[in-house]
Design a protein around this nucleic acid. Structure first.
Length: 446
RNA sequence: CGGAGCGUGGCGCAGCCUGGUAGCGCACCUGCAUGGGGUGCAGGGGGUCGGAGGUUCGAGUCCUCUCGCUCCGACCA
């Protein structure tokens, strides 16, 4: 993408409503624009990051055996009357009437609808386990939206729903999602810690919130210092191997980790003082088992091997990609701006042409730009080429602000020797290389 | 929903107390110069001062109502 032809409205000054760093940087980098309290438009740069996160989430859900569907944002109220939640959900649910005066709502979550889909088609334990997910916009009319997309009213959520014939099966499904989440967050460059969470009326030990430690987190969390360095399963993990998954989950749930709600001073006291981490956390994911709560109320039953009929056991598993954009920025930034992990960067490489119009600079840039992107059908890099006729300082500042991990600087001074400069956004290190050597290095690095 | 605060050009703000021609910085446009970390000079365009009503000869400024937004608390991916 040539910056001169792109839409990336970066701001020099910080809009005053933005309080936390991720919100400030997202506005300044032109990633989003607020349209109303807690409601945002995603501008090109922000959308690219959102899509990358979404794709990683999708790949890891698929790897774990979940199957993608897409349910609507608008749901009929009658479904929610069946489960009893139409009245229970309260003002957080945005209620809408259509032209016939029928009641609808903008979905805050999809348990009812997925249960309806399930009961319409599945009759036998032989079709289980089943895990269906979608990535769709949700609306919760929060009392107090804040912190930009971190707590918006409209937000993108991946929500998966598992169906099993009994609790043992549900536990296996739960473990698959647990491990899938470990992998997902690791791929996003984040260290997420699974914390015991409230299971509500079901009880038991099957609910975890995945928290990212950050000063701006909204929750107070307590965990063992072993967590941040624990090894995450590789991509070749076998998601059909229930016992291996159970062992991993066991390993990841043994050290102490709890949010404020579930915090137990007695157990906490048994953690050696040097190993206690008491910090703020951003809730990036939440998984739980809720048994037959909806299947019972909505008549989602299957036949068991012994010929009896039983309500299906369900769990749900949420990750918020839009919130994760902000969470990643909270975790990766410096005074100059964002520093994207390579897996989610909106562009892999930024090329800065120090002096557009000067032949040697233009030529070197065009070669780099074309070669790095590769030809049609090639899996080349995403490249942002700053070809604008603008003072160099502004270009550097802008490129740092938007946080591309690798920048290539092409200027008259070094191109005289046939060289360009490659800069690492994270370390600030710069090396001079010939155009050819630079191409090779960049291809290798990505 | 309780408490606090803010709405003046795209962004950041001053002006309001004490009513009298709507201002500054950034951004934007034109020209010249400049070119290795938010460039200099000169010229220029853009604002129903959130909205409605009122007081007044006259309202950005005073009064009433209203809408929007932000922050702090209780709730949530």
């Amino acid at each position: 993408m040539r910056l001169s032809q792109y839409f990336m409205p970066i701001l020099k000054e910080t809009p005053k409503e933005a309080e936390i760093v991720s919100h400030r940087l997202m506005l300044r980098a032109g990633m989003v624009r607020q349209q109303s309290a807690g409601i945002y438009s995603w501008l090109p740069l922000g959308l690219r990051v959102l899509r990358k996160i979404e794709e990683i989430v999708r790949e890891e859900q698929n790897r774990a055996g979940a199957i993608e569907v897409l349910m609507p944002t608008i749901q009929p109220a009658d479904l929610w009357r069946e489960s009893g939640r139409y009245d229970d959900y309260g003002k957080e649910m945005l209620r809408i009437k259509d032209r016939q005066g029928r009641d609808f709502l903008f979905g805050p979550t999809n348990e009812e609808m997925i249960t309806e889909i399930f009961r319409a088609s599945i009759r036998s334990y032989k079709d289980l386990p089943l895990n269906l997910y979608h990535i769709q916009w949700k609306f919760r009319d929060e009392v107090r939206p804040r912190f930009g997309v971190m707590r918006g009213r409209e937000f993108l959520m991946k929500d998966a729903y598992s169906f099993d014939v009994d609790e043992a099966g549900a536990r296996a499904s739960y473990n698959r999602m647990f491990v899938s989440y470990l992998r997902t967050f690791a791929r996003l460059g984040l260290k997420a810690i699974p914390m015991r969470a409230d299971t509500g009326p079901i009880g038991g030990d099957m609910s975890h919130e995945f928290h990212i430690l950050a000063d701006t987190g909204e929750s107070e969390v307590f965990c063992h210092s072993d967590y941040p360095d624990m090894a995450v399963p590789d991509a070749d993990i076998d998601f059909r191997d229930d016992s291996t998954l159970a062992a991993i989950v066991n390993q990841w749930t043994t050290p102490y980790a709890a949010t404020e709600d579930m915090h137990d001073e007695n157990e906490w006291g048994q953690v050696p003082e040097a190993n206690r981490i008491s910090a703020r956390g951003i809730e990036a994911g939440h998984i739980f088992y809720f048994g037959t709560k909806y299947s019972q109320a909505m008549g989602a039953r299957v036949m068991t091997p012994d010929g009896s009929e039983t309500p299906v056991h369900m769990g749900s598993y949420g990750i918020g990609p839009s919130r994760l954009v902000a969470a990643i920025i909270e975790a990766f930034h410096d005074d100059n701006g964002i520093i994207w992990p390579k897996s989610v960067t909106p562009f892999d490489v930024g090329i800065i042409n120090m002096k557009p119009g000067e032949k040697a600079c233009d030529e070197a840039c065009e070669i780099l730009y074309a070669q790095l992107q590769g030809g049609e059908g090639s899996s080349g890099l995403d490249v942002l080429y700053d070809d604008r006729d603008q003072r160099a300082g502004a270009k550097f500042a802008g490129m740092d602000l938007i946080g591309l991990p690798t920048q290539v600087v092409v200027g008259p001074r070094s191109i005289k020797n046939g060289e360009v400069e490659i800069k690492d956004r994270r370390t600030g290190e710069r090396v001079n290389l010939t155009v050819e050597a630079a191409l090779n290095k960049l291809r290798e690095d990505h």
